[in-house]
Design a protein around this nucleic acid. Structure first.
Length: 271
DNA sequence: ACTGGCTCCTGAGGGC
DNA sequence: TGCCCTCAGGAGCCAG
């Protein structure tokens, strides 16, 4: 599942291929994604030159003079750079045709992904407007988290996955960051000390940075014609490691559900 | 203002 | 080998 590091890696690959390309057509075979794909996408994007490929949270923003395509990969979304006449595979829902006969093809089996179109500055779009800071923003810090968490009773794991607080912390990296910071995922957010929030903010940045670095090597040619993105199976310390020994102390990793999500932690290292 | 539960969807994996 | 069931998950939305 693409988390922020994967999306950032995709963005970098896309930028190299897409910027300066003219969109010659948009083919929507399946409009029922997370939200219906708006007609305006196929009406207004053709003829436009892609000027920027940006990212906000896990949204990819393909910027043109006429507007911005907002793309989310959801759980299973994949973008492949292929020749326009490449045979279709199951779940190939959208093609962005480009001059020169190339094509950016969107495949998404579970259809939790999204393709939207906005003519406003994208940061004002309802989906992006209320998002919290990026983990690498100066605004993101232990002090910031500590302030936001005042009086909050939700589990710290749920709290750091709330995109109004900070974006880009999905389930896998929430588990890993809490392990790295030595914090019990079930503790109420409002009960953490500022020192602990500092540790957690640092752990979130470290875990994401490492993953982006790895993505740079394992995902470099994600838009190759093979079309297999191969999301990296980096060494995860706790996620999906129920009963495995904790890499730090050897205690078996525990599993529980927090806010409908599978959660993994070391009962000895995380307090 | 928060919190927790529901929802969309398909493929993988387990049990028999 | 095949069928059926359960579960996973991003994130918006809504009820309490």
């Amino acid at each position: 599942m693409p988390e922020l590091p994967e999306v950032e890696t995709v963005r970098r690959g896309l930028a190299a291929h897409l910027i300066g390309q003219v969109v010659t057509g948009v083919v929507v075979r399946q409009a029922r994604l997370r939200w219906p794909v708006p007609d305006s996408l196929a009406l207004q994007l053709p003829g436009q030159t892609i000027r920027q490929v940006e990212r906000r949270a896990k949204y990819l923003l393909l910027g043109t003079a006429a507007g911005t395509a907002i793309v989310h990969l959801g759980m299973t979304g994949r973008l492949c750079w292929v020749a326009a006449d490449t045979p279709l595979r199951k779940h190939d829902h959208i093609d962005l045709l480009l001059d020169g006969g190339q094509c950016l093809r969107f495949n998404d089996s579970r259809r939790f992904g999204a393709w939207l179109w906005t003519t406003e500055p994208p940061e004002q779009h309802p989906l992006l407007r209320a998002l919290g800071p990026e983990p690498f923003d100066a605004a993101f810090s232990g002090a910031y988290l500590h302030r936001c968490a005042q009086g909050r009773t939700a589990a710290v794991k749920t709290f750091i996955m709330d995109h109004h607080i900070v974006v880009g912390v999905g389930n896998i990296y929430a588990n890993e960051a809490l392990f790295a910071a030595g914090i019990d995922p079930l503790r109420p957010a409002g009960r953490l000390t500022e020192i602990e929030w500092e540790r957690l903010a640092g752990a979130i940045r470290t875990v994401l940075t490492d993953a982006i670095r790895q993505g740079g090597t394992t995902l470099r040619d994600f838009v190759g014609s093979r079309g297999e993105p191969g999301y990296f199976q980096q060494r995860l310390c706790v996620y999906d490691r129920y009963r495995d020994p904790c890499p730090r102390c050897g205690e078996p990793i525990q599993r529980c559900r927090i806010g409908q999500r599978a959660s993994y932690y070391c009962p000895r290292c995380q307090r």
